[in-house]
Amino acid sequence: MTRYPVRMAVTLKPEVLDPAGQATLAVIKERGFGMVDELRIGKLVDFSVQARDPAEALEVAQRLGREFLANPVLERFDVWMEEDLRLGAGCDGE
């Protein structure tokens, strides 16, 4: 068994309203960051998985995302493993 570090970004689905991102963007644009746009706020979750191989670790991470870390009604998630090598395609959790 090997320990695989995983990083997961949980973000709101693009069509879902993000009040936090909206309020933040409005203020920072007024305060000298007019060049910034399309700001949306999500969560970054770091963890490690004990698994036989990267594929199994990825499978565990995706299951964790679907069942716990992301809210399938509102959120999607992306998974990164091993030196930012992006193994998994984005998954909306449904």
């Binding site: 009040p19 936090a20 309020a23 933040t24 203020v27 305060r31 706020i41």
Partner: peptide, 15 residues
């Protein structure tokens, strides 16, 4: 203030 969404008070501090 500003919904306190980012961190409480974080955006108002720059008003």
């Amino acid at each position: 203030s500003y919904g306190d969404y980012l961190r409480a008070g974080a955006l108002a501090a720059h008003a």
